[in-house]
């Protein structure tokens, strides 16, 4: 085919690189991706750096510094489609835990020369700064979902990444519910599908890696956890994970913990 291959760029902001690794982890499919997309900018994988504009930008990481807040605007200007990948880019990530406290205190504790640190008060999602065309959830993202999103982009169709609960995936796998049969607290009912219910499949409660589902009733789930014997502190800490700053999780930790839940010690 003489068709021009769309140019792909992969960007990193405040993150652990795990989601970019999911892309490299695609192995077989990665060759196909390279065949259909011109991997123009992907510093994690290649030193080849072709100038923009780009047809598709995958953005990993959250915005935590004034410099990055500026850089994401540039990325947006250079990208026809901008897709965020992972919990950091979509809800601020684990580093958004600092949003619940005073970031200057952390800086003073962690760094020998705090005056060199230039940082924002909060870690925030990419969509808090620029328009985003699609958000792919997960900490880390699921590689099959990533390939699905890229295939959908290449073929001009809607990706199949349902926004319903993890429970549906759990039941499609015919798992026995750990919450009902074992009394294990599980975030599955309020969590966005995508992982295939990995943790309940291995008899653990869901950790909420994919953030809140489309209509997450965290208030009702918290009440049930507490009825089952979980402490208020455990309940708050469960929401204060990789997606702590996502609205449905954040509001519940503030309410249940009365603003003090996570930092009792």
């Amino acid at each position: 085919m003489a068709k021009r291959r769309p140019k792909l760029a992969v960007w990193k902001f405040a993150s652990c690189d795990g989601c970019q690794l999911s892309l490299l982890d695609c192995e077989d499919e990665l060759l196909a991706v390279a065949e259909h997309l011109d991997i123009a900018y992907f510093p994690e994988a290649s030193s080849r750096m072709v100038k923009g504009p780009y047809d598709l930008s995958l953005v990993e990481g959250s915005i935590t510094t004034p410099h990055d807040a500026e850089r994401i605007r540039r990325v947006r200007r250079e990208s026809r489609r901008l897709v965020t990948i992972g919990a950091c880019a979509t809800s601020g990530g684990i580093q958004a835990l600092r949003n619940f406290a005073d970031h200057r205190e952390f800086i003073n504790i962690v760094y020998a020369r705090p005056e060199y640190i230039s940082t924002l008060e909060q870690s925030t999602a990419i969509s808090d700064h620029v328009d985003v065309d699609f958000e792919l959830r997960g900490c880390p993202i699921d590689k099959h979902q990533l390939i699905e999103v890229v295939s959908a982009y290449l073929n001009n169709r809607k990706p199949n990444t349902p926004a319903h609960s993890v429970c549906i995936e759990c039941k499609l796998r015919a798992n026995v519910c750990v919450m009902v049969a074992k009394g294990t607290p599980c975030l599955g009912p309020v969590t966005h599908a995508g992982c295939g219910a990995i943790c309940p499949t291995y008899l653990r409660g869901c950790y909420g890696c994919f953030g809140p589902q489309e209509t997450a009733n965290t208030q009702s789930l918290s009440a049930q956890w507490i009825k089952m014997g979980a402490s208020e502190k455990e309940t708050v800490e469960a929401y204060r994970g990789f997606n702590a700053w996502a609205e449905a999780f954040r509001s519940e930790t503030v309410k249940v913990g009365n603003g003090e839940g996570g930092d009792g010690e």
Binding site: I147, C167, L172
Partner: peptide, 28 residues
């Protein structure tokens, strides 16, 4: 107020029959 909209009830119900279809393509 109590419902989680988690869908477990419909999944376990022996009479619920609803399905959806998902169309997928590969990269090519």
């Amino acid at each position: 107020q109590r419902c989680l909209t988690c869908a477990n009830c419909t999944m376990v119900c022996p009479t619920c029959f609803c399905t959806t279809v998902e169309d997928t393509t590969d990269l090519t």
